[in-house]
Design a protein around this nucleic acid. Structure first.
Lengths: 138, 138
DNA sequence: ATCAGTGCAAACTTTTTGCACCGCA
DNA sequence: TGCGGTGCAAAAAGTTTGCACTGAT
């Protein structure tokens, strides 16, 4: 992990190590609240570190279904392209994989957009929304 | 529009009319700030009306790329299924259409998820992210 | 006339920042 | 040892809510 941080002027501090460790060992995007508890890091430090890691492309900020945003490791580090199944009831986010056929078609679509939109496209988001089983029954 | 609101215990008030009118005449999701200015409605009223309209399925809340959430007419009212091209620099959101081939494949994918996830799926989000031309050059 | 809607201000939640001190490279 | 990181507390930013008043049905 140091080899990722060093070239970016980001020191490998205790807190940074802790945040990254928590993010590495989870299978879904976490809220700052969850991170603060799991990584045992003060709020302000968590926000500041996360902002730095996002700028560095190491962590991705996932816009929340509800109020609070969530964070997860960037795909180039987690080695795993995936998508999100978001519960619009409680904000729970779970990862899932799409078929390679769909991924290929999405790539084609993005190529077309690149040409027409004037945007410099960095990535795509394919999320599915609904109610998790708890929210359906509850 | 009244015929949409009446069955839902939502009165067609001046503000509601104004908000819906603004939403009908725009091609992208708007922030509450933008809505308050365009529709000339007080903040609290805007939030309360939007919450009601979202509950009623008339309006959709689009999780913000940055901080502020955005709102747009639900697709069953705008008559137009579409996707979002989001600028991660300034938060600008533009609508675009995907190929019908991609849409079909997405439907198949969602069918599969329905069966395996335990989620009650309501809709999908296929967003593309990047920097708009202003943010690239600026 | 009734009950949803309104508008202000105050409260809340989430995120950002100022400042003095600390510790990694 | 210098500069990035830290931690508290205060401030922004975005959203929600209490309450007394108004207006659509």
């Amino acid at each position: 992990m140091l080899q990722v941080l060093a070239p970016l002027e980001l020191r490998l501090t205790k807190h940074r190590r802790s945040l990254l460790s928590v993010l590495e060992n989870t299978s879904r995007p976490l809220t700052v609240d969850e991170l603060v508890v799991s990584a045992d890091v003060p709020m302000s430090t968590a926000y500041r570190n996360l902002a730095g890691l996002v700028d560095a492309g190491i962590v991705v900020r996932v816009a929340g279904a509800g109020s609070a945003d969530r964070y997860e490791l960037a795909e180039r580090l987690s080695q795993r392209h995936h998508h999100h199944l978001v519960c619009t009831g409680c904000g729970l986010v779970t990862d899932f994989d799409a078929s390679s056929q769909l991924e290929k078609l999405i790539d084609v679509e993005i190529e077309a957009l690149l040409a027409t939109s004037g945007f410099e496209i960095t990535h795509h988001v394919f999320d599915v929304r609904g109610l998790c089983s708890d929210c359906v029954t509850g």
